[in-house]
Design a protein around this nucleic acid. Structure first.
Lengths: 204, 204
DNA sequence: CACGATTTGTACCGATCGGTAGGATGGTTC
DNA sequence: GAACCATCCTACCGATCGGTACAAATCGTG
């Protein structure tokens, strides 16, 4: 991590965040283990020693990429939670997720899911990092819903923990579908179905 | 693929399906690329040339493993579609999925998802094979729901294609959660929420 | 028992993996 | 311009990847 820019010496020939975005795309498309250092350096436009001097190693590069992914992609979905009602928050969360998962400006799907759900034993930390990121989003969602429950903004007896998990699971399932080529309209139609769960009468 | 057992020569010292199940577990736990041949042969209890003589190569071994996974695991979820009503079919599908995803007899999660959502370019076929398997399940689900729609067994105006995608997406999202350690009860509580979508009145 | 057929184990193949040493390069400062 | 210094690039490291050659071992059959 280069925290301070030196005043002397040869300056870097690349912008750190630019090449980090390129690396993020490679991880996003091919997963952690599927992204070889050669593929990474090719996409980033820098050579191997520059990568190591700037980012440390492959795992640290991935952590930087994942952090940036959170700041840019996941943050927009989380911003949806600021909607005034629980219904609007969930709808905005799911709809902006579906949009992001199928945005042509990025690879399809979600780095948090396809980055490395399953890894070789020596890369088990990658799966944990991704799972922690997803758990953080689910936690934010659950907090928002708890507040809604206190305000009487949810159907009576609704289990907010289960609801948060349901919304996250659906969003992650949509990521799986998006990675396989599902269209934005397909995902939004699935969201339409999910939202029915919020206005159903309780009980069977 | 050894289609016929030879009448002469040294007999195999292992049962083909037994070692295939062991291989399936390794793929299931670590994904296609995360499962090294050494890890596979260790778990299978056979050595490398035996693996190649019996299964061809790593990709063909995976295809066999995935086919067997479908026959055993996915088939039980698909059997749920035989329930008499659409509601019962969906509930049984989601509940048996949730049970299977958290069955302690197997690795947590779903081979169709963690086998290789994202791969290196030379293994892109693996992702396609997995996606095709998931699509086949979704197609079966959609067929069942179309039949239900004709029978008036679904809320009026329900989009069966979207509903099938919704159910599949939720199930795959549950697979992501299960892989990260979610409990069976957590997944079933999420199913409870999802089922509300089937009894909600139409419109907003 | 000897033969042919098949599987087994060891030991190896080239290619690629993530990671690095060390000299050439280009910029800043005095 | 000269000293300094961080970055860039080529070329390489040991380890592991998926895959295989070859010979010893083990069976059914004559």
């Amino acid at each position: 991590m280069s925290t301070k820019t030196p005043t002397t010496g040869r300056p870097k020939a690349f912008d750190e965040e630019t090449v980090l975005d390129r690396a993020t795309e490679v991880f996003w498309r091919h997963g952690y283990e599927g992204a070889s250092l050669s593929a990474l350096t090719d996409a980033m436009g820098i050579n191997r020693p520059s990568l190591y001097a700037t980012f440390g190693n492959k795992e640290q590069l991935f952590q930087r990429a994942f952090a940036r992914y959170h700041q840019t992609q996941v943050a927009t979905a989380r911003a949806a939670l600021q909607q005034p009602t629980a219904y609007a928050a969930i709808e905005a969360f799911l709809r902006s997720s579906a949009d992001g998962l199928t945005d042509a400006a990025h690879p399809a799907g979600c780095l948090s899911v396809q980055g490395g759900l399953a890894c070789s034993p020596e890369n088990a930390r990658i799966s944990e990092i991704l799972a922690a990121g997803r758990a953080a989003t689910e936690s934010a969602l659950q907090n928002r819903l708890s507040r809604a429950a206190e305000d009487g903004d949810l159907p009576d007896g609704m289990d907010v923990r289960a609801l948060a998990r349901f919304v996250m699971a659906l969003s992650e399932g949509h990521a799986v579908h998006a990675a396989a080529g599902a269209s934005r309209e397909d995902l939004q139609a699935s969201v339409d179905i999910a939202l029915r769960a919020l206005i159903a009468p309780p009980g069977r």
